[in-house]
Design a protein around this nucleic acid. Sequence first.
DNA 1: AGTTTGACTGGAG
DNA 2: CCTCCAGCCAAAC
Length: 116
Amino acid sequence: MRDYPDQMTPEQARTFRDDVLNIVSQIPRGRVTTYGIIAAWAGWPSHSRMVGRTLRYTPGADQLPCHRVVNIAGRTAPGWGRQHELLQEEGVGFKPNGNVDLRHYLWKPNVDSMLG
DNA sequence: AGTTTGACTGGAG
DNA sequence: CCTCCAGCCAAAC
């Protein structure tokens, strides 16, 4: 028995999108988080792909610090070279392979930040 | 209604 | 560290 429906209701989809954007807006300068972490905190642990979809296609998402979202390997978004620059300008450190050093710069949402 | 496509992830080699 | 590969799931074909 799965703990989530096969398909999101429109309301759930709206809530998911709002939660994703809300979490992204709280990522501190100079830190990053991952698609999977955001999805889990939004209540849909297996929807990491949808987090990426949301950030790419939601109008206005570019006004949020979505450049602070990378994948679990610390890899920046394909086709978005400027993301690397933006992170460097904030002091985010990269490994020799060009990925973010998550050991030092990974940020996770916490309860306090969710209580508004 | 079946197939392909990703701003993803975890495991295998 | 890397590259496949399977699983994932909403959207687009």
